[in-house]
Design a binder for these strands. Sequence first.
RNA 1: GGGGACGUAGCUCAGCUGGAUAGAGCGUCCGCCUCCUAAGCGGAAGGCCGGCAGUUCGAAUCUGCCCGUCCCUACCA
Length: 652
Amino acid sequence: MFHIIEKQIQRLVSGHLTARYGETMEVAIESPKQSSFGELALPVAFQLARTLKKAPRAIAQELAGDLGALPGVATIEIAGNGYLNLRLDRGAYGHALLAGGGAAASTGHKIIVEHTNINPNKAAHIGHLRNSVLGDTFVRMLRASGNTVEVQNYIDNTGVQVADVVVGFHYLERKSAAEVAALAAAPRFDYLCWDLYARVSQYFKEHPESEKWRAETLHAIEANQGAQAELAHVVADAVVLRHLATMRRLDIVYDVLPRESEILHLQFWATAFELLKQRGAIYLATEGKKAGCWVMAGSHFRENVTADEDDADDSKVIVRSNGIVTYVGKDIAYQLWKFGLLGKDFHYKPLLEEAPGHTVWVSTDEEQSAGAPHFGAGHTVYNVIDTRQSYLQDVVAAGLRALGYEEQAGRSIHFNYEMVALTPGTCVELGIELSEEDRKRAYVEVSGRKGLGVKADDLIDKLIEKALAEVEDRNPDKPAVARLLAATQIATGALRYFMLKFTRNTVIAFDLREALAFVGETGPYVQYAAVRAGKILSKFGERGETLPDFAAVLTQEAFERQLATEDLWQTVLLISKAESALEDALAKGEPAHFAKYAFQLAQGFSAFYDGYSVIHEQDPERRAFLLWVTLYFGRQLAWTLDILGIPAPAYM
RNA sequence: GGGGACGUAGCUCAGCUGGAUAGAGCGUCCGCCUCCUAAGCGGAAGGCCGGCAGUUCGAAUCUGCCCGUCCCUACCA
């Protein structure tokens, strides 16, 4: 509701400025520093001061006089050096809230969000969790504001990481595809791969000559022939299913899994390669370290480098001298497909039903796409990828530009975020051994290669265990199944909120104690507010009472009387800002901002809960009003939690 | 060497395109459950916003320089 008023005033004031001063400008609207100053603050007088060469306060005075009555606004005051502070007409505002507002309008463009993208060669860890939670929440935010969104989870099933685990099974363990398939059928095959991957990495370090196994394996995989290729399929397919299962524990699902194997087998890369060569985006290096490689010149993706300054050292290898394309090359082909620019499409087959009525599809090279939605061909593409890969993302975007797709390159957005690292303290707590130098660092990077990290499923298990103990303690009378469900929901809420509370460019120094916290600024705190609101209403029902006819009792005059109480007005105002908070967070591209709003909303309700006894209230009008606030809060918080992907438990 | 991010309370972090007395959580200390679940609420202490200069009516926010931390700069991704 608040955002509607905000926009309306913005429009009216902006129109007035154009008419009065001939100034066209975006009218900024802020919240006053103190709530006692009103609900909206306009610093326009400051903005105008420059061009009009007048004191801000004088301009503010003029504006206050000229603007006249604004709809929904009770008073306009001049404050400070020239602020215009507006107070809303509380009665009218409350009454409008009761009547309800409109839904978000659809934009019509398809937005593609690519996230998760975990190499299918080991278990998911907390770093991957940040990616998935960030991506999934952003998707929910986009959808809640009316966008059509397609969620893609790119599977690099032919890359070096999968190859390394295949090396482990084939050369070190000497296992056949059938034997590995049997292992893969057991629970948590991804954990087994986690250890093997670390072992292989260590083996390569100690026996550099054995790295030829990796090259052989990569060749076999790319050619899709031989035992290693078969093993790669077994490993990658099984681990992908494990990743999907892990993410589903956090209510994260996908629409389609485009796989690198199809990028190769369906000649996506070959097509892109031809395009890149034809348009001179890449060239064959003939001398130096990169002789024999197809490279992209540094001037394409680096600023401040002119073509004649181009240094072979700055160039990026797209195709290795042994003929194998790099990840970046394949990603350029993939990006082209995402925008519908490649002139080719995958075939698709249903992989599994992730939720009732929701099927996740996977790319395939065999024609069997019956019933598949039309994937790809997006208008805007968000790539949720950690910030360390900025360089590679720049190369990919440069690839699009070099092919003449300037607009699409601009709408290909690297939704970057910082890594999750471990504090040395947490490593000690988890029994992870650290080197001398690592121990001195503020934090150490999670590394799959070193097997250094906290596995996602382990963390979720821990959270559920802790939540269950609390739930059992508080709800001994509830059935075990229901308690487990509540504990699982609390764990999900705690984890998702934890991953979201940091802004994207903050390195999360993962602290186990903080991640396991259920008090303070946490998911469970927010969930608890929802539980309490629900409890008020269920207790009310248990007493055999029925809700009043709000429209009849809560007239505009009644709202005016009730909202004259300052803290109640602040509570209602806060509840009405959910849509506004979403818009703000989307504009900033910062899910953390929306998570923060959820927390503030819960804080507001907790104070309300403490300060007012709803069902024991004697005055009928006040009681109806308090009930309405409770209902309104419940509705807005449910909407907010849903967008954050945080479930609302029945009790806690 | 080049590119980028960061430095705000004891700790972990928010602070929007400059704006009114710099915020939150944790931790510490003090209060609050015969009353809708205390995973809660109220209060207190705690800050030269890394440093210096500049831009201006006004700077945590913008610019430059310095100090410190981190990431990237692979024929890994």
